[in-house]
Design a binder for these strands. Structure first.
Length: 1066
RNA sequence: GGGCCCGUGGCUCAGCCUGGUCAGAGCGCCCGCCUGAUAAGCGGGAGGUCCGGGGUUCGAAGCCCCGCGGGCCCA
């Protein structure tokens, strides 16, 4: 049986705590999962958040979307895989641990605490953050397998990475290469393209013009521009564009006349900037300059340059490159193949050496500035060039410069040996597979994605660090390599291990070997330094591990199979892979969405997910990013604590379309909460009466219930709602779903349906009319709660438990099936008619308001004037509702006779007839109606003819005085203002009823308590009231109404000139 | 320089996919109503060149093209 609601008011905090406890006590989550164990598979793959410490609103939004989808699919009957994941390796954690331990460099890690301890700390840190974040997700009501998350640091996961890399190697997609890459001198590691994306920050750097003397020509120079003076020691060439025009410019300097070579288009700008006057004396194409030799300006300081000059044909010469632009600089590009990506490429073409006299920490390894950090050397180099007379101009520039994404150190370009996944070779395959197999939400993201893939290069996966998947590459002293695909394989191939610098030979037998390994190294742990100890033998040659670890983006890239422990466990993979759905923020389009496809095409020749959705960022109310420095961060805990989980969740899916940025607004959240509050009030109202009446829908035969039009209407509406919500979720247009629910609850259910049936609920006894209303409300909840359960799981559960569970028997709302629309009950004609009724009521109320007739006073008649057949039918069929809501004795469709008042249109007549206007006006005043009826006519006045039309008239309708009118879409409503004595008496009775009711409430009387009413008032009121005494008695549960001295609880009501007293009858 | 998204009353946003219901909601402002959902609820009013300009169409906030402004991604 339905009980009196436990909370009279909607208090999300209390309610949600109660439901949390309920779920926990009943193990509801596991039961929900178990109930769908035999359903079709649905592999939802959680994009693993990085274990940075605490979740923010963006992470919360992400998981809220995921949870809603998971709950929805579960209700649809799918057996949903819902394992959460965590990204736990990588530089960010290393940096945090270094900070915590006060370590400054990589050397500190190796010598001060040792790699094994460092790894242990990283692991602790990661696991600890995982715990914290798990609690935060749980707090949001996210139903995932929190006891069994996938963790990128588990042996099975790492092994999955090894398997993938081995596949790549077997296919020839894993290669070592010398490349110029971003390098972080603090972290002492290379960084990949995608790690630098978005890490460009404005920074001040030197901006210098330097002249390189042309060999063998007096006073002739190549003018170059650079913002990295520190790369000049590694300069090996000057690049010009073959097709551009270049100019020899005669300039006047302090040293006298000189000739500078500059791109023609830039001559003016450059001369201006360096403050020198000059004139062009010769012009030629860039390719003419090819081979021109110059004197390296730091040859004495860097003796190695002298060797290059002797050994390499193209060293210190002008070379050609298409990458040269005329956007800035001089059109002649200082080229250092060891320190620039394009420099490197063009250098390869001309056979130049890759010279990079800089160590891992960014210090020169030789020459004049040996041991100096390169950025510190900038001013010294500038000063030195000045002394030597090569500096033309030194200034500063503010430009965007890449920084390390974790430690914010400015990066340098540096050539190093790195390991690559040759994604460029499978790019076409990725795009093809993606086109054929993946559905994108919204669709246009795919275009963005394809562009991203098209533009991406090979993937540098090696990092010179510790906390990551160890690169499973072993190599001989002369560089032959072997990639190990599993721990088992590693043990099989191992011949020795190195323990504390000592070599320990291993026995032949596998199990024996394992025993020795465990004894010396401890239990299996595929991290460094454990795996570094292994010495393997392949084809008779001993090999040792390459010390690098793998880029952390590779970790998450393999999640779709690594989280299934593939290949150690093949069963899950075969059952589930590929993933059915993933959803992440827009930053992941070129990151996780891509890294997954790249890794998967390499490993399995196909893409690892079938549907992918993208959401935006969470911004603050003004549209700014939330950041510590702006102090505008809002924590999810704060939101939950202040407003509750359900409002938060619904709000995040309601505020804006998911793919756009969400401006978080407390006001918006309050609006959603208000909607839930309205829902709650509807529930409290219904449940209260139902419980009083011991309502039991299972004992009723719906086919025998006398349903009214409004009942059929709301059932039709709620069935339509199913379609809207479902379509909204399926197409990822989530606002379509949430706004449909919002609108239904507020407009259809609360503002209209409940308003219409309230009186039916007050009837006592087993009134069939009341039962029909109860039954309808109950049916509406049966559908609505299912639709809302994925969005607001707590309130849906609470209401379900009381209203539905006693009759449906199912333990939780989350175990119910997603509803199917019942086409039979959808009646579009009725919905249209009801829509008109609502409009007529609105228009009528508006008219009343203008006439200042309170709703409490009945009106004699309301006339609806319309040509629309649907409106006519509506007024006929739904007449009772109209009378009731408009408090009218009669509502009819009729044509209202009205008088037309025809006057001259002065604005038209005046300008047109000027001096004759008065004449025309006089005529119209008299004969306007003739003109109106004729439409147009020629009128002869005082010998002149005037052509007049209706345009010369203003036509006003004059209603009989007792009407007030208001338009609505579809017609016009007329309210008859005539107030008869009877109507007045009825209105006054209502006035008194309302006041007596309020007094009852002030006394906190029970609905069933009886009272005696005493009224002191004017004779006129007394007379009017006497006509409706029975009505007043009935409404106020009064046994008696006495005119005379007010007694008991007395209140004076000046608005009705009365004193009323009430006394409870014991 | 290229790609994608967004641009609707003072503010935050729906509607656009699938062209036709005075262009909607909430907040804020003003004025009321209702009261057995009650420290809630409801109505009305003021307020809009639907970024601008072309085009398609009987009809465009919506579709197409150009431009302007903002955001993101890439170079």
């Amino acid at each position: 049986m339905i009980k009196e609601p436990e909370f009279r008011e909607y208090n999300p905090g209390k309610l949600e705590e109660k439901i949390e406890a309920f779920w926990k006590e009943n193990d509801t989550y596991e039961k929900v999962k178990a109930s769908r164990a035999n359903g079709p598979k649905y592999y939802f793959l959680d994009g693993p958040p990085y274990v940075s410490g605490a979740i923010h609103l963006g992470t919360a939004w992400n998981k809220i979307i995921k949870d809603m989808i998971i709950r929805f699919r579960t209700m649809q009957g799918y057996n949903v895989r819902r394992q959460p994941g965590f990204d736990m390796h990588g530089l960010p954690i290393e940096v945090k641990v270094e900070q915590a331990l006060g370590l400054k460099t990589k050397k500190d890690i190796e010598t001060e605490i040792g790699v094994d301890n460092f790894i242990k700390k990283c692991k602790e840190f990661a696991l600890n953050n995982l715990k914290v974040m798990t609690e935060q997700f749980k707090m949001l009501g996210i139903w995932m397998d929190w006891d069994n998350p996938y963790m990128t640091i588990k042996n099975e996961y790492i092994e999955s990475g090894w398997f993938t890399l081995k596949r790549a190697w077997e296919k020839g997609l894993l290669e070592k290469d010398k490349r110029v890459l971003h390098w972080c001198p603090r972290c002492e590691t290379a960084l990949a393209e995608h790690e630098v994306r978005g890490e460009y920050k404005v920074r001040k750097d030197p901006s210098i013009y330097v002249k390189f003397p042309v060999e063998g020509r007096e006073n002739e120079y190549l003018l170059i521009w650079t913002t990295t003076p520190w790369t000049l020691p590694a300069n090996l060439a000057v690049t010009v564009h073959p097709e551009y025009d270049y100019a020899k410019v005669k300039v006047e300097t302090e040293n006298g006349e000189e000739y500078w070579i500059i791109a023609k288009a830039l001559v003016e700008r450059v001369l201006n900037e360096v403050g020198v006057k000059g004139e062009v004396v010769e012009e030629f194409k860039g390719k003419k300059l090819e081979g021109l030799r110059y004197v390296h300006v730091l040859m004495d300081e860097y003796p190695r340059q002298r060797e290059f000059r002797e050994k390499y044909e193209w060293a210190h010469r002008v070379i050609l490159g298409e990458h040269v632009t005329l956007e800035d600089g001089t059109g002649l590009v200082h080229t250092a193949p060891g320190h620039g990506e394009e420099d490197f490429e063009v250098g390869q073409k001309y056979g130049l050496p890759v010279y990079s006299p800089v160590d891992d920490q960014g210090r020169y390894t030789e020459g004049r500035w040996k041991g100096v950090y390169v950025k510190d050397a900038d001013p010294e180099i500038i000063e030195h060039l000045k002394e030597k007379g090569y500096l033309v101009k030194a200034g500063t520039i503010e430009h965007k410069y890449p920084h390390c994404w974790r430690c914010k150190t400015p990066l340098i370009f540096r050539a190093t040996d790195q390991w690559f996944l040759k994604v460029s070779k499978v790019k076409d395959k990725i795009i093809k597979e993606n086109d054929e197999k993946v559905t994108w939400y919204p669709e246009w993201v795919k275009v963005r994605y394809d562009n991203g893939v098209m533009n991406s290069g090979d993937w540098v996966i090696s990092r010179q660090r510790y906390w990551g998947i160890p690169l499973p590459i072993w190599q001989t002293e002369n560089g032959e390599i072997y990639v190990v695909g599993s721990f088992k394989e590693l043990v099989e191939l191992a011949v020795a291990i190195e323990v504390d610098g000592e070599r320990v030979e291993l026995p032949e037998d596998y199990n024996e070997k394992l025993r020795v390994i465990e004894e010396k190294l401890g239990p299996e742990d595929l991290h460094r330094p454990y795996v570094d100890a292994f010495i393997i033998k392949v084809n008779g040659k001993e090999m040792r591990r390459v010390k690098d670890v793998v880029d952390v983006w590779f970790d998450s890239g393999i999640a779709s199979w690594a989280s299934l422990d593939y290949p150690r466990n093949k069963e899950l993979f075969e059952k589930l892979w590929p993933a059915d759905f993933i959803v992440e923020g827009e930053d992941q389009v070129t990151k996780w969405f891509y890294s997954q496809q790249a890794a998967s095409v390499i490993a399995f020749n196909t893409v690892p997910y079938r549907a992918v959705a993208m959401h935006g960022y969470v911004l603050d109310e003004k549209g700014d990013k939330m950041s510590k420095s702006l102090g505008n961060i809002i924590r999810p805990e704060e939101v939950v604590q202040k407003e509750g989980r359900d409002p938060f969740r619904f709000y995040m899916l309601w505020a804006t379309n998911p793919w756009e940025n969400l401006r978080f607004s407390w006001k918006g959240l309050a609006q959603v909460k208000r909607m839930l509050n309205i829902l709650w009030n509807v529930y409290v109202l219904s449940a209260t009466y139902m419980s009083l009446d011991n309502f039991d829908p299972t004992k009723l035969k719906p086919e025998e219930l006398p349903f009214r039009e409004e009942d059929r209407w709301i059932l039709s509406r709620v069935n339509g709602l199913i379609k809207d919500v479902e379509e909204g979720i399926e197409t990822f247009r989530l606002t379509k779903a949430t706004r449909a629910i919002y609108n239904f609850v507020v407009e259809d259910l609360s503002r209209w349906y409940i308003r219409l049936i309230r009186k039916r609920m007050w009837v006592e006894g087993d009134d069939p009319d009341k039962l029909a209303a109860y039954y309808t409300v109950w049916k509406v909840f049966d559908v609505l709660l299912r639709l809302m359960a994925p969005f607001t799981p707590y309130i849906a559960e609470e209401i379900y438990q009381n209203m539905l569970r006693p009759f449906l028997g199912v333990e939780s709302v989350h175990m119910l099936d997603w509803p199917k629309p019942d086409e039979e009950t959808i009646d579009e004609e009725l919905e249209r008619e009801m829509e008109y009724v609502r409009r007529i009521v609105e228009a009528g109320s508006s008219a009343r308001q203008r006439a200042k007739i309170k709703l409490r006073y009945p009106v004699r008649r309301i006339i609806v004037e319309t040509e629309d057949e649907t409106v006519k039918k509506a007024v006929e069929r739904l007449n009772r509702i109209l009378r009731d809501q408009l408090n009218a004795k009669e509502v009819v469709v009729e044509k209202v006779e009205r008088e037309l008042v025809i006057k001259p249109n002065f604005a038209k007549v005046g300008p047109e007839f000027k001096g004759d206007a008065k004449l025309v006006i006089a005529w119209i005043n008299e004969h306007g109606r003739e003109l109106y009826e004729a439409g147009e006519m020629d009128v002869k006045l005082e010998g002149k003819t005037f052509h007049l039309t209706r345009e010369h008239l203003t036509i006003e309708e004059k209603l009989p005085d007792f009407f007030v009118a208001e338009d609505f879409e579809g017609g016009r409503v007329f309210v008859d203002k005539t107030l008869t004595r009877e109507l007045l008496a009825e209105g006054l009775a209502r006035e008194f009823v309302r006041r007596i009711q309020e007094m009852r409430k002030r006394l906190d009387l029970d609905v069933n308590d009886r009272i005696v009413v005493t009224i002191e008032t004017t004779d006129e009121n007394r007379e009017l009231l006497s006509e409706n005494l029975d009505y007043i008695k009935k409404e106020t549960r009064a046994t008696e109404i006495i005119f005379g001295e007010a007694k008991g609880f007395v209140v004076e009501w000046p608005e009705v000139q009365a004193k009323i007293g009430i006394e409870k009858v014991e």
